[in-house]
Design a protein around this nucleic acid. Structure first.
Ligand SMILES: Nc1ccn([C@H]2C[C@H](O)[C@@H](COP(=O)(O)OP(=O)(O)OP(=O)(O)O)O2)c(=O)n1
Ligand SMILES: [Mg+2]
Ligand SMILES: [Mg+2]
Length: 1121
DNA sequence: ATCCTCCCCTAC
DNA sequence: TAAGGTAGGGGAGGAT
């Protein structure tokens, strides 16, 4: 057993509440901590959830206090030198302000810190309620929001924009408008926190339950062989003998057909090989790392490594240092260079690039269901190199071919290095992949150990696949030494001949032997290969399948690992023949639908899979579970950064970006012994937290921020960490032109009716002209923020390089324009870019003045901006964000208010205008008419649709309570009477919501009048035909409106709001195939549905002017701006 | 029903 | 000393 733990998840009853499993052991652990325990959880011992420990707020203790002092000194030292960022200290805007930054912020922690430094404020590295005056945070995950809400009481929790805006305004602004909207209500007092400690906060701490499984040694081949080859034993022996004789590769190949007189139809063939060439001596230093094949990050530990003498009580002692993360700032990179599993794990992505999938995959015989009749006609070859790693490194050591040889990092007979591959003589002693070298040496003292040669493996794999592709165009790569060929269509003769030809060619080219299995489907071909090994081939005709499988141990079936094997053995199933006795229904009941069917099929030799190209990957990640030892937070942060670099490189290497990030942590189990394996992770709990962001990214810095944030939401002693992994999913193509072009049903509707989009209100044009003059020195870019990337622009701009709407990569932004944005908008935009914007600008304008002041000078970053620009009239007609750029805040707000006041009537009129510009009467313009009567007037079909979307209680309301819609909001406080005439009062409500002090009874719940929903749906229905044609996201927003909250729970109101925020962000992200029209409509729509989400209002007020300018005009006077 | 999320299992 | 990674399939359970 390689793994230390003997725990088997199969025997563990599943917990229904996954997220809570870990908490107990976690607490137990904390109670045993000596030093850092105080820092990391001593104040929350009584909590039965880990949520309190997820926030730095819960982590202040003696250690943290000390740390805090240290960092503050450092900070003050920096302040006194005042050389920071090369600029002189600014006005003391933030005198007396002491901020603490919680989690991932935009701009970054460091940037905010720099601003505080520059403008007279102070910055707390760790939260102290005695000093901190403001908590800064943005974009916290749900769990943290809830947590923060509990802790922040009494202290303002403010978005970073407050700082930026204050700097821009050159005075300390009120923080009130910048309150984190998710937290705006019901902030408990800090005192409440201390009494709340035993009152668990609901939270989504995701903790895996432990599943350290016994890795039974691989049974490679052996059992398979025993099961079916007995009939051809003599032939095997003969073949093996023959294999050692010839010298000339071209004559080494002998085919032995066993079908002639034998009872079985299974045919075996073997050929021998010998080597004679240059000496790659045992233990030679010719080793090359897989790092050559991976995108590895360079290390970067900056100023840590300060050997804290006091913390020298390292687990494992200083002897560990050298091979752990403790001693090596480039640990990640170096580790991956030497990891065999990393090599084989990342091989696939390299293959993808080297052999790009040709579209020749026609799925010819995929005539829907692959019935067994169908697979009768199929012929599949499975090819697998024999003991690949060994074969490659002993190619030039013919004298070793009949000696036991294994590949391993270490030859230490007491070592815990793992055998990677053992040749067949070695396997006779029981040596196999995965066992420790000491066990291997015990089994076989004369075992010869060779080091890895990853470069050679890569080369041989390339040769291997070149040969396969030459002979067959339907190749499915399984691994670096293994592939399936579908030769069904091959008219040319005998599959066995083809297999032997291929094997011969492989041997002649690589001097390594391969084995092949030939059968009617992938399953049987693979099993046949097992029988054929080593250096042989095996054909299993359909008629022999049953017999072949009958005695086959179930573990030999691909897909049955040790867990399934054990479960089946408990049912007294040891062989496929016994497995067949269990009904499919029973198997599906015990193992699930698919797995049950797989078992049923496989035990009968049925496999409907098709040989196909490798699909594009769905996840990309990197993890390290060896040598991970941290002495303090800095160690871990440094490691995380390197991991982020690695992942970022891999993402970029694959040309994708991701939106979901999962941080996996292996944490030493409380009572775990030292790992059996040197530097291993031992018996661990698996913890993982994930976070989805709106904008796909591959950027290291963004990854780092997110990762930091995720890491912070764990609670543990970093000394207990034994493994760390970062996985990215929800991948999108980084090249947007390749993005799947669905979506945007609304868009087509809108754009189809919009023949010219260049019209503009006069003030816009004026602003434009002014901006143009200001930025005319910019290269080929008339001041547009997104020169050619909005869906709208792309439509208009025929000069655009991309005909499909594309996202604006950061490098394509006009930094001059960006810098000119009002701080508020800048901050939002920065958020859209994951915080990168600030850094980008900071880097590109080192010597310049305050970057948040209004620009007018466009320095050297002109070169950063992109693109063709298309100087023509069309390009200059496009409407950029620069509309807002020169607005000062006051003016901006005025505009916002006006827009808010008038936007209520927006959607319907503009929608109608666009559909039928000359006919504004299709829909009632007065919102006061919105009523249940609307519902009644609707076509039956639509009425059904709408009713179907309403919760039952709403339905009842609507059908029984006609006319009372205007007072539907139970709170009444902000129940807005929605009529055209009252839009002014709406505006004032809006205004007060945004700018009033801490909300009194104000609740940021998202409550919506049903009649408005009906009305809106009706409009959408009329304009679009049905709500079903809305884009999924818009549909979801509507459904958020329909189901604003679970009325039984206060917390759910927050949830709903938060989700909605995410949706908005998605809408505002100005990425993907940005569809301004749809966003615009959506904003109009949402504006009418709620005035209660502060977040929405803020986003709205920031973004809407832009949308307005871009598309609003096209929808006629309905906007009444 | 169908999707989504959080895992476990498997293979190399 | 040693380099226990990577990604897809799919089950369970919850949301819709
Ligand atoms: N636990 C494992 C399994 C595999 N490998 C590496 C070494 C192998 O050489 C290579 C290919 O794996 P195979 O399963 O094909 O095993 P071999 O090729 O070594 O032997 P066989 O002849 O059984 O295919 O992957 C490894 O390092 N560790
Ligand atoms: Mg192999
Ligand atoms: Mg293989």
């Amino acid at each position: 057993m390689s793994y230390d733990s003997s725990r088997s998840s199969a025997n563990k009853s599943r917990k229904s509440k996954r997220g809570l499993d870990n908490s107990n052991s976690s607490n137990n652990k904390n109670s045993k901590q000596k030093t850092l325990g105080m820092a990391w959880g001593a104040n929350s011992l009584s909590s039965s959830r880990s949520s309190f420990r997820n926030s730095p707020f819960s982590n202040f203790g003696s250690y943290m206090a000390e740390k805090n002092r240290k960092l503050q000194h450092q900070f003050e030292a920096e302040a006194s030198t005042s050389s920071h960022s090369g600029s002189s200290p600014g006005k003391l805007i933030f005198q007396g302000v002491y901020i603490f930054i919680d989690g991932f912020t935009i701009p970054s922690n460091q940037e905010l810190r720099a601003y505080m430094l520059k403008y007279g404020g102070r910055f707390a590295n760790y939260f102290s309620r005695h000093q901190v005056t403001h908590i800064i945070c943005s974009n916290l995950p749900d769990s943290k929001i809830k947590n923060l809400r509990s802790f922040s009481g009494g202290l303002p929790v403010v978005k970073p924009a407050w700082i930026l805006d204050s700097i821009a305004a050159n005075k300390l602004l009120s923080w009130v408008p910048y309150q984190l909207n998710q937290l705006a209500n019901n902030q408990p007092k800090l005192s409440a926190f201390f009494t709340l400690k035993s009152n668990p906060v609901l939270e989504n701490v995701l903790t895996d339950e432990v599943c350290q499984v016994n890795l039974d040694p691989f049974l490679k081949g052996g059992t398979t062989k025993d099961a079916c080859i007995s009939k051809v034993d003599e032939l095997i022996k003969f073949a093996e003998q023959a294999g050692q004789l010839p010298d000339d590769p071209n004559h080494q190949f002998e085919e032995l057909n066993t079908s002639s007189g034998k009872s079985s139809e299974v045919k075996m063939a073997k050929f021998g090989s010998s080597d004679a060439e240059d000496g790659n001596s045992v233990n030679s230093k010719h080793q090359s790392g897989p790092g050559l094949f991976s995108a590895s990050a360079s290390g970067c530990c900056l100023h840590n490594q300060s050997s804290d003498g006091s913390l020298s009580s390292e687990p494992g002692g200083p002897s560990n240092r050298h091979h752990s993360t403790l001693g090596d700032p480039n640990f990640v990179e170096n580790y991956f260079k030497s990891s065999r599993l990393h090599f084989i794990g990342t091989w696939r992505s390299r293959y993808r690039k080297r052999f790009p999938s040709s579209s020749s995959e026609l799925k010819c015989r995929s005539s829907d269901l692959n019935t067994s009749a169908n697979s009768d006609k199929s012929t599949i070859i499975h090819v697998d190199m024999d003991c690949f790693f060994v074969s490659v490194v002993i190619r030039n050591h013919p004298e070793l071919h009949d000696k036991p040889v294994a590949v391993c990092h270490s030859d230490n007979p007491k070592g815990t290095a793992e055998i990677s591959s053992a040749n067949y003589p070695a396997r006779n002693y029981g040596v196999k992949a995965g066992i420790f070298v000491r066990d291997a040496k015990a089994l076989c003292p004369q075992l010869v150990i060779f080091p890895y040669n990853f470069k050679a493996y890569e080369e041989v794999a390339d040769q291997f696949y070149s040969i396969l592709h030459k002979h067959c165009h339907k190749v499915q790569a399984v691994s670096c030494d293994e592939a399936f060929l579908d030769i069904t269509e091959k008219d040319m003769g005998d599959p066995e001949l083809l297999a032997s030809t291929i094997r011969k060619e492989i041997f002649n080219t690589t001097r390594c032997t391969a084995s092949a299995g030939i059968a009617g489907n992938m399953l049987m071909a693979r099993l046949a290969t097992g029988s054929a090994k080593p250096n042989g081939q095996c054909y299993i005709p359909s008629v022999s399948v049953d017999e072949y499988l009958y005695k086959l141990p179930i573990k030999a079936l691909p897909g049955i690992g040790h867990v399934l094997e054990e479960k089946l053995k408990k049912q007294n199933v040891w062989t496929c023949g016994q497995l067949r006795l269990i009904s499919k229904e029973s198997l599906q009941k015990d193992f699930g639908l698919k797995t049950g069917e797989m078992l049923w099929n496989y035990s009968r030799g049925v496999d409907n899979r098709l040989v196909g190209n490798i699909k594009e990957s769905k996840t990309i990640g990197a993890e390290v579970n060896w040598g991970v030892r941290f002495k303090d937070l800095q160690d871990s942060q440094c490691f995380l950064l390197n991991l982020c670099k690695e992942v970022s490189f891999r993402l970029q290497g694959c040309g994708v970006q991701g939106r979901m990030f999962t941080l996996k942590i292996k944490k030493r189990r409380k009572d775990a012994d030292e790992p059996a394996k040197y530097m291993g992770c031992g018996d661990c709990e698996n913890l993982s937290h994930s976070m989805t962001v709106s904008i796909a990214t591959d950027d290291v810095e963004v990854l780092q921020r997110i990762t930091k944030q995720l890491f912070g939401s764990f609670c543990f002693d970093v000394k207990d960490i034994r493994g760390v992994g970062l996985q990215v999913s929800k991948l999108e193509n980084a090249d947007p032109s390749k993005q799947a072009p669905e979506r945007n049903s609304l868009r087509s509707w809108l754009t189809s009716t919009t023949t010219e989009k260049a019209c503009r209100i006069d003030s816009m044009a004026k602003e434009r002209a002014r901006i143009d003059s200001e930025v005319k020195n910019l290269i080929g870019n008339s001041g547009q923020l997104f020169p050619d990337h909005t869906g709208f622009s792309a439509q208009v701009n025929s000069n655009s390089s991309s005909d499909i709407s594309a996202p604006p990569p950061l490098s394509h932004l006009d930094m001059g324009v960006v810098k000119g944005l009002p701080a508020e908008l800048f901050s939002e935009l920065n958020e859209i870019y994951g915080g990168k914007l600030t850094d980008f600008i900071a880097k590109s304008s080192v010597a310049s003045e305050n970057i948040y002041s209004y620009p007018s000078t466009h320095s050297a970053e002109g070169q950063e901006l992109s693109v063709d620009g298309g100087e023509g009239p069309l390009a200059s007609d496009m409407i950029p964000l620069d509309f807002i750029m020169v607005e000062n805040r006051a003016k901006q707000h005025m505009i916002e208010e006006e827009q808010a006041a008038t936007s209520w009537a927006g959607l319907q009129s503009e929608a109608i205008c666009s559909v039928s510009p000359n006919n504004n009467d299709l829909m009632p313009l007065s919102l006061s008419q919105v009523d249940v009567s609307v519902l009644q007037q609707l076509p039956e079909e639509l009425r059904g649709d709408i009713l179907g979307q309403l919760p039952a209680h709403r339905k009842q309301e609507l059908t029984s309570n006609a006319g009372s819609h205007l007072s539907e909001n139970p709170e009444g406080a902000l129940n807005i009477k929605i009529t055209e005439n009252q839009s002014n009062s709406t505006a004032s409500v809006l205004n007060s919501n945004l700018w009033s002090g801490s909300p009194p009874q104000w609740v940021d719940k998202f409550t919506v009048s049903s009649c408005l929903i009906l009305k809106t749906l009706a409009e959408l229905y009329c304009t679009l035909g049905s709500t079903g044609s809305l884009s999924p996201i818009l549909q979801r927003i509507i459904s958020e409106c329909l189901y604003p909250l679970d009325e039984n729970s206060d917390a759910c109101g927050e949830e709903a709001t938060y989700d909605l925020c995410e949706l908005f962000k998605q809408y505002v992200k100005l990425k993907m195939e940005l569809d301004l029209e749809e966003i615009y409509v959506c904003f109009c729509l949402l504006k009418r549905l709620t005035t209660k989400s502060k977040f929405f209002l803020q986003v709205y007020n920031i973004v809407f002017p832009y949308l307005q300018a871009s598309v609003g005009e096209n929808y006629g006077g309905g906007l009444h701006i």
